[in-house]
Nucleic acid binder design. Structure first.
Length: 899
RNA sequence: GGGGGAGUGGCGGAACUGGCAGACGCGCAUGACUUAGGAUCAUGUCUCUUUCGAGGUGAGGGUUCGAGUCCCUCCUUCCCCA
C-alpha cells in the first residue's frame, strides 16, 4: 500500500489496512516470512494547491502530513515494516522514477507526441480528466478547452495484446473485465479512401462488410486535412464549428443522447470499393485521438451515423438484410444484426453472421478481396491509448530530458540523476508551474558542452506508484531501483489489496511496468540469483501481483436533518423569509401536510414545516411532508429555537440531512478514527471494521454496533483473568470444549484465508460463547481450560494484537503471542461422535434423529423412515424415492423423502 | 445504450462445489439482579397459525429429489464505459 499523505488518516485507511494486517499477521504465525511495508505516494497536485492557497512549500506541507500520518498509522497496531518505508517525493526514490523514464526512452517506450488535452487558460496547465467537471475546472469553475499539445507518452499500447491475458494470476473478474473493456480490442480492416484531390484518408472499420453502404465520410474537427479540403464556400462555417468543438470535453462530444452536429466541408471522397463520390463532413462525435480521426459513415448499420444522416438529409443505403428469423429492419434505427450482403456488387448474398473479424464469412471475404486489390488490409485496433505522463506542474518527478539549441533531445546522463526539483521556487497564483520560470533549473549544458534547456514538465504520479513494490525491497539501495538479492528472495508479490476504483489506472499501469521492466532485462540479475538458490524464475516477472483483492468503501452514515417549523413572509410560492424557526418533533412535522402560500399568508403568516435537507449559510432547503422542496431564508434577527441545545441558538446549529455517500470534509460526514481509538481502543476499532462489514463491499458507517465488539473483548478479558471452572474434569464436557476450540480454529483460519474477515470474527465470538457456557456448566479441568484460553488468544492475535499480547503475558506465557505458531486444526478432535440426521420431505426438514457419525446410506434411510416426522408425512404410504446426502465438511447428513 | 456487481429479518451481515435460510452481532421484548456508570445475567425474537402445521431470500416463470445459490423474462440500485 502507498497512501497519499493528505493530512489526516481516514476511517477508510483503517478499513483497507487493518484486515490486510490481520491476514499478514496470520501468515506470519503460519510460519511465513511476511513483508508488510508502508510508504507514501507523496507527489501530486494537492500539495501544490496548498502552496498556492496557503503559501506553504509543497515539500514542507507533504513532509508535515507524512509525519502526522506515520503517527496515526502506528496507532493501528499494524505490523508495518517501517525500515522499508519509501517516500516517492524523496530524491532517493525519484532518482529511480527518472531512471525508469530514461530506460523507457532509450528503448523507444517513451516518446514525445501530440495529444488533445484539457487545457485551462486561466491556470496555464493541463488538467487530468478527473479534474474537469462539465467542461470546467473543478477548482476555479473556469472553462477548460481541448488543445493539441506536445506531451510525453509511454507506449503502453505495445503491450495491449499481452495486457489482455491474465495467466497465473488470481484477480477479481470485474477488474479483469474492466481492463479488457478499457483496452477495447477490435478486429476489422483499415481501408484507404481518397479525396477528389487525391489526398489519402485512412479509416478503420470493424464492419468492412458494410463498405458499400458508406454514403459519406466524417472527419474529426481537428483532423489535419480539414483546412486543406474545405471549399471556400464552406470555410466560414467549418472554422466556426472547429472552434466550437474545441470547447467541448470528450465526454460531452460522445454522449449518445446528445444531438449530433456537423458541417459539410464542400469536399468529396471516392469510395474505393465502388468508385462512388461521397461528401466529406466534419462532426465532433469523431475524435482525433481515436483511430485515425476519420470514419466512413454507414448510416444504415450504425446508429450514430444514422442519426447524423437523418438530421442532414444524407442518403441511407441498406447493405445487410436480415433473413427470416434474424431480426428485422426497424424504421428510425440502424440495423447491426446478422443478414446477407445486398447492394454490394459481387458480394451480394454473402452471409454476415454477426460475429466479429474473420469469423464472419462476409468480413472474411471482403478483407481478402481488399487485400488482393490493395485497397485495405486486415487490422486490429485498440481503444487503449498511450499513457500520457507529462504534467505541467512542479510537484512531481522531473522528466530527465534536455533540449539542445539545435532542436535535438538528449536524456540526462545516469550519473547526473536525479534531476533535482529546485526548492527555492515561488508560486504564482496563476498556478503555472514555477519550473517554467526558474532560471537555474531551466538552463543546463548538453553533453557536447552547448547550452540546453531542461524539460519543465514533471511526471504523472501514477508513474511513482507503478513500481513502488520493488522499492520496498530495498528503499536505500543506490545501485538500482531495487536490490536483486532482495528481489530474488521476496518476489513476486503474493497478495495485493486495494480499491477497485484503480482498475483502469494504477492496476493497469503497474502491469505495463513489470512487463516493460522484464523486456528491458531489469530482472535478469534477480532471475540469476533465484536460479542459484534453486528457484525457477520462469513467469515470475509477468504480473505485478499474483493475488488481488478489492475492498469496498466505508461511506458516511445517513442522518436525518432537523424537522422545523419556520414562520415568516412568503416571497413567491417556494421561498419564505423566516422570522422564527423552531425545531419540532418528526411526528409533528409529518402531520403538517400542505404549506402552499395563500393570499392571506403571503403577508406575515407564511409557514414551512419539514426536514432540513440542505443548509448554506442562512438558506435552508426544507422537504415538506408531501415531498416538496422549499427554500427558507432565515433573517438575521430571526428567533431560532432548538430544544436539544440550551441557551440562545443560531442558524448554524440547525442540523441538515446527510445522505449515504462518500465521506468528505465539505459534507461534514467524516468519521475520525483517532477519536474512535481514543474512545474504544485500537483493537476494538480494528475488530469492528472487520466484523461489521462485508470487506469487499463496504457500506455506510454505523457506530451503534461497535458495542458488540466491546462486549466480546470485555468477556474475553474476564474469562481469561477469571477463575478456572472446576478442579476435576468431566471427559464429556472437556470433549465438547475441545470440539468448540477446533471449530473456531477452522472458521477463523478459513475466514482469514478467504478475506472473509467478518465470519472470522464471528467464529471468535462463537468461541467466546462456548467458553462461557463451558464455564457455567462446569466439568472442565484447569489444564484443559487454560489450554482453550490459550488457543483463543492465539486466534485473536491477528485481529486484536494489543489485548491478545496483554492477556498472553498475564497468563504467564512467553513473549510474544505474535511469534507463536498458529494453532493447527485437528480433524479428529473436531469430529463428532454422533450426528443429527436431518429428515426432509421434498427438500423441507420435517424431523431430526441422532445417528452415528459414520452412518451409511442404508442405515440413514432406515432411521429416517422410522422417524416420527416421516411416519406422519407418509401416513402409512410408500415414499416415491429416497435421496441420501452424506454429511461432509461439517454438515449433517440428510435423507430426503420424495412423496 | 453497452459491460460488471448487488438485492436475504427492524439493522449490519452469514450460508463452502445446489443440501436444515437467517450463523455472529446490533436493536427490540419479557423476566432476574442491581436501582453509580455505554450496566450485567437469563429467555425469546422471519411471517402466518392458540396448537398441529404452512409459507418465506426484489417480481414472475423454469430445471432439480432438493434452488438464496443454476437458466429465462422483468424491476430496483451501485460501479465502469459510452
Amino acid at each position: 500500500m502507498l497512501p497519499y499523505p493528505s493530512g489526516d488518516l481516514h476511517i477508510g485507511h483503517w478499513f483497507a489496512m487493518t484486515p490486510s494486517d490481520a491476514r499478514a499477521r496470520y501468515m506470519r504465525m503460519k510460519g511465513y516470512n511476511v513483508l508488510f511495508p508502508m510508504g507514501f505516494d507523496a507527489f501530486g497536485l494537492p500539495a501544490e494547491n496548498a502552496a498556492v492557497q496557503r503559501n506553504i512549500h509543497p515539500a514542507k506541507w507533504t513532509y508535515a502530513n507524512i509525519e502526522r500520518m506515520r503517527g496515526q498509522l502506528r496507532s493501528m497496531g499494524a505490523m508495518f515494516d517501517w525500515q522499508r518505508e519509501a517516500v516517492t517525493c524523496d530524491p532517493e526514490y525519484y532518482r529511480w522514477t527518472e531512471w525508469f523514464f530514461k530506460k523507457f526512452y532509450e528503448a523507444g517506450l517513451a516518446y514525445r507526441g501530440e495529444a488533445m488535452v484539457n487545457w485551462s487558460p486561466t491556470l496555464q496547465t493541463v488538467l487530468a480528466n478527473e479534474q474537469v467537471i462539465d467542461g470546467r475546472d473543478e477548482r476555479t469553475g473556469q472553462p477548460v478547452i481541448q488543445k493539441l499539445m506536445t506531451q510525453w507518452f509511454f507506449r503502453i499500447t505495445n503491450y495491449a495484446e499481452e495486457l489482455l491475458r491474465y495467466e497465473g494470476v488470481d484477480w477479481p473478474e470485474p477488474v479483469k473485465t474492466m481492463q479488457i473493456n478499457w483496452i477495447g480490442r477490435s478486429e476489422g480492416a483499415k481501408v484507404t479512401f481518397h479525396t477528389e484531390q487525391n489526398d489519402p484518408i485512412e479509416i478503420f472499420t470493424t464492419r468492412p462488410d458494410t463498405l458499400w453502404g458508406a454514403t459519406f465520410m466524417v472527419l474529426a474537427p481537428e483532423h489535419p486535412l480539414v483546412s486543406k479540403i474545405t471549399s471556400d464556400a464552406q470555410r466560414e462555417a467549418v472554422e466556426a464549428y472547429v472552434e466550437q468543438a474545441a470547447r467541448r470535453t470528450e465526454l460531452e462530444r460522445t454522449a449518445e443522447d446528445r444531438e449530433k452536429t456537423g458541417v459539410f466541408t464542400g469536399a468529396f471522397a471516392i469510395n474505393p470499393v465502388n468508385g462512388e463520390r461521397i461528401p466529406i463532413w466534419i462532426a465532433d462525435y469523431v475524435m482525433i485521438s481515436y483511430g485515425s480521426g476519420a470514419i466512413m459513415a454507414v448510416p444504415a448499420h450504425d446508429q450514430r451515423d444514422y442519426e447524423f444522416a437523418v438530421k442532414y438529409d444524407l442518403p441511407i443505403r441498406t447493405v445487410i438484410e436480415p433473413r427470416e428469423g434474424e431480426g428485422e429492419l426497424v424504421p428510425g434505427q440502424a440495423y447491426d444484426g446478422p443478414g446477407v450482403m445486398v447492394n454490394s456488387d459481387q458480394f451480394n448474398g454473402t452471409i454476415s453472421n454477426g460475429q466479429k473479424g474473420r469469423k464472419n464469412p462476409a468480413i472474411d471475404a471482403v478483407i481478402t478481396w481488399l487485400e488482393a486489390k490493395g485497397i485495405g488490409r486486415e487490422a486490429v485496433t485498440y481503444r487503449l491509448r498511450d499513457w500520457l505522463i507529462s504534467r505541467q506542474r512542479y510537484w512531481g518527478a522531473p522528466i530527465p530530458i534536455i533540449y539542445k539549441q539545435d532542436g535535438t533531445i538528449e536524456a540526462v546522463p545516469d550519473e547526473q540523476l536525479p534531476v533535482l526539483l529546485p526548492e527555492d521556487v515561488e508560486f504564482m497564483p496563476s498556478g503555472r508551474s514555477p519550473l517554467t520560470y526558474h532560471e537555474p533549473f531551466l538552463h543546463t549544458t548538453a553533453s557536447d558542452g552547448t547550452p540546453a534547456r531542461r524539460e519543465t514538465d514533471t511526471m504523472d504520479t501514477f508513474m511513482c506508484s507503478s513500481w513502488y513494490q520493488y522499492r520496498y525491497l530495498s528503499p536505500h539501495y543506490d545501485r538500482g531501483p531495487f536490490d536483486p538479492e532482495e528481489a530474488a528472495y521476496w518476489l513476486p508479490v503474493d497478495v495485493y489489496t486495494g480499491g477497485a476504483e484503480h482498475a483502469t489506472l494504477h492496476l493497469l499501469y503497474a502491469r505495463f511496468f513489470i512487463k516493460a521492466m522484464r523486456d528491458l532485462g531489469m530482472f535478469e540479475e534477480t532471475a540469476r540469483i533465484m536460479r542459484e538458490h534453486g528457484r525457477d524464475p520462469e513467469g515470475l516477472f509477468d504480473e505485478p501481483w499474483l493475488v488481488l483483492r478489492n475492498q469496498g468503501q466505508v461511506l458516511g452514515a445517513e442522518r436525518e436533518g432537523d424537522y422545523i417549523r419556520a414562520t415568516g413572509r412568503w416571497d413567491g410560492p417556494n421561498k419564505l423569509f423566516a422570522t422564527r424557526v423552531e425545531v419540532i418533533a418528526k411526528e409533528e412535522a409529518l402531520e403538517q401536510s400542505d404549506t402552499t402560500p395563500t393570499a392571506e399568508s403571503t403577508l406575515d403568516s407564511g409557514m414551512v414545516v419539514g426536514e432540513i435537507m440542505r443548509r448554506t449559510e442562512n438558506i435552508l432547503t426544507v422537504r415538506t411532508a408531501n415531498n416538496e422542496l422549499r427554500t427558507v431564508e432565515v433573517l438575521d434577527d430571526a428567533e431560532i429555537i432548538i430544544p436539544r441545545i440550551e441557551g440562545e441558538n443560531t442558524v448554524n446549529q440547525l442540523r441538515h440531512h446527510l445522505e449515504v455517500q462518500r465521506m468528505s470534509k465539505s459534507k461534514g460526514n467524516v468519521v475520525n478514527p483517532d477519536e474512535l481509538v481514543a474512545e474504544y481502543g485500537a483493537d476494538t476499532v480494528r475488530a469492528y471494521l472487520m466484523f461489521g462489514f462485508d470487506w469487499a463491499k463496504g457500506g455506510p458507517w454505523n457506530s451503534e454496533q461497535i458495542i458488540g465488539v466491546v462486549r466480546w473483548l470485555n468477556d474475553v478479558w474476564n474469562l481469561t483473568l477469571g477463575d478456572p471452572p472446576s478442579p476435576s474434569g468431566d471427559p464429556r464436557a472437556e470433549r465438547d470444549l475441545e470440539r468448540s476450540v477446533q471449530a473456531a480454529i477452522r472458521r477463523v483460519s478459513e475466514g482469514l484465508e478467504t478475506f472473509s474477515f467478518n465470519t472470522a470474527v464471528a467464529g471468535l465470538m462463537t468461541l467466546r460463547n462456548d467458553l462461557q457456557s463451558a464455564l457455567r456448566r462446569g466439568g472442565v479441568s484447569a489444564d484443559v481450560w487454560r489450554d482453550a484460553l490459550r488457543t483463543n488468544l492465539l486466534l485473536m492475535a491477528p485481529f486484536t494484537p494489543h489485548i491478545a499480547e496483554e492477556l498472553w503475558e498475564r497468563m504467564g506465557f512467553e513473549y510474544s503471542v505474535h511469534t507463536q505458531e498458529w494453532p493447527a486444526y485437528d480433524e479428529e478432535k473436531a469430529a463428532r461422535d454422533t450426528v443429527t440426521l436431518v429428515v426432509m420431505r421434498n427438500g423441507k426438514p420435517i424431523d431430526h434423529v441422532e445417528a452415528p457419525a459414520d452412518v451409511d446410506e442404508a442405515e440413514a434411510k432406515r432411521l429416517a423412515l422410522e422417524s416420527a416426522g416421516a411416519r406422519r408425512v407418509l401416513n402409512g404410504g410408500e415414499p416415491k424415492r429416497l435421496v441420501f446426502v452424506p454429511g461432509r465438511n461439517g454438515q449433517e447428513p440428510k435423507v430426503n423423502i420424495v412423496v
